[in-house]
């Protein structure tokens, strides 16, 4: 496999796509967000349990490619314990990293494995899909959100 492919499908990503974490409906969730990509039909629902402004627990359901599933898996892990503002700030950094390849000094933690996606413009949407669902959920929207 080429270097670019190894960078795209890092071991952590392959691991999370084969065995996604937090892949269930969340009992007692009080927020829900949906992400749908009309190009490929990929569709995820993110469930959050929020205590005030803080994400206490996060899970997801749905189907899609390896990149989108691993992204949803890692991201639901990462946002637990973060405030709404912290989640949004993290999204801005991750979005920047996925579109430019630049990993921010502030750190995006485990989500740095998605830096390789920027070399595959057609796959940027996959990595960001579940983020749209999360942002919709923390904002308290219950409408499906499109990535288009």
């Amino acid at each position: 496999m080429s270097d670019d492919l190894d960078e795209l499908y890092q071991q952590v990503i392959l691991d999370h796509c084969k065995g996604p974490r937090n892949f269930r409906v969340l009992e007692g969730a009080n927020r829900k967000g949906e992400g749908y990509n009309p190009l490929c039909g990929d569709n995820y629902t993110v469930f959050l349990k929020m205590n005030g402004d803080v994400v206490e627990d996060a899970t997801f359901q749905g189907s899609g490619c390896c990149i989108s599933k691993a992204s949803a898996s890692l991201l639901t892990d990462t946002i637990k314990g973060k405030t709404k503002a912290e989640v949004k700030a993290l999204f801005a950094k991750v979005h920047d990293m996925i579109t430019t390849g630049a990993v921010s000094d502030e750190g995006v933690g485990k989500l740095a494995v998605f830096a390789g996606v920027h070399k595959f413009p057609a796959r940027v949407k996959c990595a960001i899909l579940s983020w749209h669902a999360v942002i919709a959920a923390v904002d308290g929207e219950n409408q499906p959100v499109s990535t288009e």
Partner: peptide
């Protein structure tokens, strides 16, 4: 089995094979 069409197409493309994946 267990591989999404878009992952198939991305890897195939890196090997020079242009396929289509999607609906």
């Amino acid at each position: 089995d267990d591989v999404h069409a878009h992952d198939v197409v991305t890897v195939a493309d890196q090997r020079g094979v242009a396929l289509r994946g999607g609906h």
